[in-house]
Design a protein around this nucleic acid. Structure first.
Lengths: 133, 133, 133, 133
DNA sequence: GTGGTCTAGACCACT
DNA sequence: GTGGTCTAGACCACG
């Protein structure tokens, strides 16, 4: 799994990391039960601080995406990632902001749907390939 | 135009304000050339800091949604709000995050489309009413 | 509110702090909506690190005991502190451990109930006094 | 005696093991003078580290629940398990934490007593059955 | 002045 | 060698 971090982005590093890991799971580069790199090794590999990785891992554990035990962090069962109310509300809020900007900046329905498809195709990645076998 | 600010919210006040103004424009409560309340008056009306209103107005001017002259801030022509590359990229980034979470938390296509429709209907709101006249 | 931290205890400082704040709320030394000391001021007052206070505040916010906004941390409404399943399970697990030790070490029913009453009386504190008025 | 270890748990394995052994004693599956499985055999049976079993046994010996001699670890007399001051204080501290959370999260007296009874019944378990013989 | 983020580095608990 | 805790100190976002 190649994780790319942009240190000068306005999204915090730990947030970037959370999404990169989620993408890795969606692309089936990690599966249920797989262990993630240790906090310290991933930190040194990415050239960032241990605590930043730790924060990302912990938030993912709070969301139910990862589980932790004394041995480290692991990908949890999909069933555990049930979206709670808080998560749902957050998604809806973000969606509302996007739709407002879509209308204000007059992004056409075609362009918007093009983006949707493009991103969904990108997220399938390896998973799609597997399905084709 | 009724602007509602939630002081206890994760989203910064200036961001809330930006979206509330955009909603006002979408609902046609303000049209091209209309002047916005002065920074000071809006700040006191909403009970928030003057600098916060100023920041929101300035960012909206950066986005091309408002224009500023010696008299104050005004709603710009829709054509001026053409999405520049930066804005487009921002929308796409947000969209990607949403779609990742949608898949990770297994939000069904139906539920997601339901949200989309619900929000779009909400955004029509007053605008729709006007059209009916 | 006097908060006492034992740096050499085996319970982490942030946990001690969480319980001390909860006690403060139970004793009505803080009420709904009251703001807590700033992360940095409480840290310096207690002679501990800012991040430790921050962790305690954040965990209390996760539990619903506090709410945070851009202005700081505040005591949330009692209704918001609804015990979720996770919290309940944690309490039950702890309770089971206590009852096991109670029986293993042959703590009599009388002694145990004495402890219960003693602690509950201690927790009433100022609240009881108010009720007496 | 069936000992169940949950490797994915917040409570350390050695702690889980300590309580499982205490439960075994309460349920009279081991009595005064009975020898416990050797450190190595129990470790391999449970699929955990030898040091972990050793730590649990040693702590139980510290608490007076087990005694150690050249032949191994044995259940000590009930009288030896008399709660020392340190143990008492530990129980009271835990109890205080529970009662704080009970009040903060508004667990009703009925619910709480329900939990108490449920757990005590569970701890009788096999012991109760023996008594019936 | 408030909290948020990030870094650097130390010591400890668990296995 | 794993994560957990704590400290110290810097820079940024928000109001």
């Amino acid at each position: 799994m190649f994780i790319e971090i942009l240190p000068n982005s306005d999204t915090p590093i730990y947030t970037q990391l959370m999404y990169q890991i989620k993408i890795g799971i969606l692309k089936k580069e990690w599966s249920y039960g797989d262990g993630l790199p240790s906090v310290r090794s991933l930190a040194s590999e990415l050239g960032i601080n241990m605590h930043t990785v730790n924060k990302a891992y912990n938030l993912l554990a709070d969301e139910g995406v990862l589980v932790k035990n004394q041995k480290g962090y692991f990908v949890s069962e999909r069933a555990m990632m049930a979206s709670n109310e808080h998560t749902k509300a957050a998604i809806q809020d973000k969606l509302k902001e996007i739709l407002i900007d879509k209308q204000i900046f007059e992004v056409s329905e075609e362009t918007f749907n093009g983006w949707l498809n493009e991103i969904e195709k990108e997220l399938e990645g390896q998973g799609k390939a597997d399905a084709d076998i």
